[in-house]
Simulated scan of single mutants.
Amino acid sequence: MRRSTQRLFGACLLALLLGVPAARGADAPRFRSASGELALLAGYGITHRGFGATRTQVQTADTILRYGYFLSAEHGSGWYRGRHELFMELPVHLVVDPRLRAMTGGYLLGSWKFTSLESLAPYVFAGGGVLYNDLGLATQGTRLNFSYQGGCGLQYLIRPDTAIGIEYRYHHVSNAGTAEPNEPLNSSKILLSISLFR
C-alpha cells in the first residue's frame, strides 16, 4: 500500500511539473519583489521508529495554511542570492495510524528563499511552535506539546505570481520534559504546495 501511494504521489508531481508552462518573458518572478506569500500545503508524514526515543509508528495526512512575510529585499550574488522570509503556519495533522485522531497548533519558521533562478525558487527553513496533540498514546504524558522542525523545498513558477512546489521537513513533537512519559515523535513529511505571491 505504501509503495503504491508513493508512486501515485510521484506521478502527480511529475504531471504538475511537465504539464504547466513556466513563467517566461518580460514578467519578473514575484518571489523577487513580493511582500508576502500565501500558500496551502498538503501531504503525508510518518514517524521513524528507532530514531531517538521514538517507538510508535504514527502516520498523518497533513494540511498546512502558510503566510510568508518577506523580511528583506534580495541579498547576495550568484547562486546564493536570496531573501529572508518568515513563515507563520496553521497546521492540521490528521493522524490515520494507529488510530484516527488530530494534532493542530501554530508554527513560526525562518526561511531563506534562493532567487537567482528564473522559474525555480529553492528554499530552506527551520523553526518550531506549539501543538495540541490528542493521540491517546500511553507513552505521551500531556496533550500540549511542542514541535521543532526544519527542511527544504522547491517552488516552480507557473505564472509570475503563482508557484507549485514540493517540500520535505523533519518534524519533532514532544512535551519538552514538562510531563512523564515523554516519547518524542520524530517524523518526515513530504508536502505539495501552491503559493500566491503578493
Rank of each mutant, 00 (worst) to 15 (best):
S77G: 11
W79V: 09
R81A: 13
G82S: 05
G82L: 03
R83L: 01
H84A: 10
H84Y: 09
L86Y: 03
M88Y: 08
E89L: 12
L90T: 02
V92L: 15
L94I: 07
P98Y: 05
L100G: 07
R101H: 14
R101A: 15
A102V: 09
M103Y: 07
Y107C: 05
L109P: 02
G110A: 14
G110C: 04
G110T: 03
S111I: 03
T115L: 04
S116D: 02
E118A: 09
S119Y: 00
L120C: 12
Y123G: 04
V124E: 04
G127Y: 09
G128Q: 03
G129W: 03
L131W: 10
L131P: 09
L131K: 12
D134R: 13
L135A: 08
G141F: 03
R143E: 13
L144I: 07
L144F: 13
N145C: 14
F146D: 12
F146G: 15
F146L: 15
S147A: 10
Y148G: 14
G153I: 07
Y156W: 07
Y156Q: 05
L157H: 08
I158N: 07
I158H: 05
R159M: 08
R159A: 15
R159I: 04
R159N: 04
T162I: 02
A163E: 01
I164R: 08
E167Y: 00
Y168I: 09
R169L: 15
Y170F: 13
H171P: 04
V173I: 11
V173S: 03
A176G: 14
T178I: 14
A179P: 06
P181E: 08
P181L: 04
N182T: 06
N182I: 09
N182L: 03
P184W: 10
P184D: 11
N186I: 05
S187C: 07
S187M: 09
S188I: 07
S188F: 11
S188D: 13
K189V: 03
I190M: 14
I190N: 07
L191Q: 09
L191R: 07
S193H: 06
I194H: 10
